[in-house]
Simulated scan of single mutants.
Amino acid sequence: MAKKSMEVVKGIDLARYMGRWYEIASFPSRFQPKNGINTRATYTLRDDGTVNVLNETWSDGKRGSIEGTAYKADPNSDEAKLKVKFYVPPFLPIIPVTGDYWVLYLDDEYRYALIGQPSRSYLWILCRENHLDEEVYNMLVEKAKGEGYDVTKLKKTTHTNPPPEAEDAPADTKGFWWLKSIFGK
């Protein structure tokens, strides 16, 4: 049976979507350290309408991060289908790697979001705070299930309170966790 096409949010206000989002749960990736905690993304709108993406995670007390660029896959569409481009490896910007970032659900207040992509290999539940009400979490999981995702693969992300400040941790110079940021690749 062919899977139905995914419902994607329409008419997203990118300016409102900017700022920091905490990863509440995701499909684990072989590129991500199993002990990565406090994982988060910070989005900043640039003057040209593209988005600066900063993904961070903490592993063994060290901060790993990668920066990239997000932009609308089709500027004329009102669907929230974005492309995200990272240069790999981050310290040697040679090979651009592009992935899909589809906003499948976003609440009216822009407080929590469900992010996926067409292959259904990757899924993220994001929230403005580093914790999410169980009822809301379960609703997002059900939505993902309805879009054809195998939600048994979802793993909750560990967060500490208060969340770390970026300056607090030594940089993780050897970590390859940033590859997990490449959606579906």
Rank of each mutant, 00 (worst) to 15 (best):
T42L: 02
K156L: 13
T42Y: 13
L54R: 13
P164L: 04
T157W: 14
L132E: 00
R63A: 00
Y149V: 00
N138L: 14
Y22C: 11
L104M: 13
D47G: 05
E79N: 07
Y87M: 14
T98R: 04
P164E: 10
L126R: 09
K143P: 02
R111E: 06
S121K: 11
C127N: 12
F183L: 00
E7N: 09
F183S: 01
F183I: 03
K153A: 01
K83V: 02
S121V: 13
M139T: 08
P89C: 06
K81M: 10
L132N: 02
L123H: 08
P75C: 13
R128M: 15
G99W: 03
L54C: 10
K185F: 06
A171C: 02
I24R: 01
T39F: 00
V151G: 10
V53M: 06
D168V: 09
E134L: 15
F27M: 07
G11A: 09
G184Y: 04
T50E: 04
A171E: 13
I182T: 05
D150C: 04
N55V: 06
W58Y: 05
M1K: 06
D100N: 10
I66C: 00
A15T: 04
T160W: 14
A166W: 01
K62P: 01
G116T: 05
K81F: 03
T157L: 11
P170H: 08
I94A: 09
G148F: 00
Y122R: 13
Y137S: 12
E129K: 12
L126C: 07
L14P: 15
D60M: 05
T160R: 12
P28W: 12
P96R: 14
R46Y: 07
S29L: 09
V88S: 14
